[in-house]
């Protein structure tokens, strides 16, 4: 089992994607199938951008086992008021700054769901959100 851990600063778009990039390099080294790597890092990158876009800070923990990857992405942020609504394509609460960075069109969570085998969302308004994503090899 390989464990990777990254701290993510909210608002720091210059660094957004660094953790996902590191995870991609690790998975490549392990010889994981390219299509599966893409699914994993697209989901993780969207989640990483979500922390940068919405939260004060967050954490990414990635557990790589011989059978798959578990990613736990947690943040200290505003939480999600209505998860059902947030899962709909086109719904977004992102700021103008986030939109200028090429995101904030309400596609993040649906994109994440499409790319993993399991997505669990735990959220508390005013406290934060934790996404647990599982992708089997």
């Amino acid at each position: 089992m390989i464990k990777l851990n990254y701290t993510i600063e909210g608002g720091d778009f210059s660094r957004a994607g660094y953790a996902s990039s590191q995870v991609k390099k690790n998975l490549k080294q392990l010889g994981v199938d390219q299509k599966i790597i893409k699914n994993i890092v697209v989901a993780l990158y969207e989640a990483e951008v979500n922390i940068v876009a919405h939260a004060q800070k967050g954490n990414i923990e990635v557990l790589i086992s011989p059978t798959g990857v578990k990613m736990i992405v947690s943040d200290q942020g505003p939480g999600i008021v209505d998860v059902g609504q947030a899962m709909q394509v086109g719904f977004s609460t992102a700021s103008e700054k986030v939109r200028q960075m090429g995101f904030g069109a309400g596609m993040g969570l649906p994109n994440i769901k499409r790319n993993v085998d399991r997505l669990d969302i735990e959220t508390k308004v005013g406290k934060g959100t934790t996404l647990t994503m599982i992708k089997d090899f």
């Binding site: 778009f13 210059s14 957004a16 994607g17 996902s20 990039s21 299509k35 893409k38 697209v42 990158y45 969207e46 951008v49 200028q100 960075m101 090429g102 995101f103 069109a105 596609m107 993040g108 994109n111 499409r114």
Partner: peptide, 26 residues
């Protein structure tokens, strides 16, 4: 819109964009 790019599963692709920031590259 980078989330749109992230929905594509095509090899040998050229991205044509007006988004000149590091997120386009990521």
């Amino acid at each position: 819109l980078m989330s749109d790019v992230l929905t594509i599963d095509t090899d040998k692709l050229l991205i044509i964009t007006g988004l000149a920031n590091v997120q386009a590259i990521r």
